[in-house]
Amino acid sequence: MDREATRRANRRVLRNTLVVAAGMFGFGFLLVPIYGAICTAFGINGQTAAIEAAQADKVAVDKSRQVTVQFHAIVNDKLPWAFRPVVSEMKVHPGEVRTIYYTAENLSGRDSVGQATHSVTPDKAAVHFKKTECFCYRQQALKPGERKQMPVRFMLHPALPKDVHEVTLTYTFFNAAAFAVSN
């Protein structure tokens, strides 16, 4: 290969590899939505899929078995709220849509904004835990001393594995003041 041809070939490698490197830098950021999508699709790390209310009503109810659903509440220390489920557990048939409530109360004398994250355990149940409505989809603001009941409408999909007898839903509320969005 003559010198000029080699130089051109080197430039080509430089250009191509730089494109790949730039692409991989972008891919690093792309991992964020990819991860989110995978988590929702497979119920990884307790991420549960939202479902349209109309769609949920069409699912046939499996009357042959009952599953106990437990509700838990955690408040991060930096959020001065009391937060608890109104009922701690209930038995449901897979396929039926139920509504439960959590209450949150701002114990402090200042306006406060919270954001909840949700976890469903065991892992294999997570993907079958469908919600049509949840307070965790957006930030919640509470005035000083304000108390609020917040609904969760959910359904256990009949495809839930038969060996799951108990499902636990846990919410953790964080102080979202630093990330507050005006509603």
């Binding site: 220390d77 959020l79 001065p80």
Partner: peptide, 16 residues
């Protein structure tokens, strides 16, 4: 002490 300091390791001891 009760509410902690946001963005620092200073915890909110109000619940503890």
């Amino acid at each position: 002490v009760i509410f902690g300091v946001a963005g620092t390791p200073m915890q909110a001891f109000g619940k503890q």
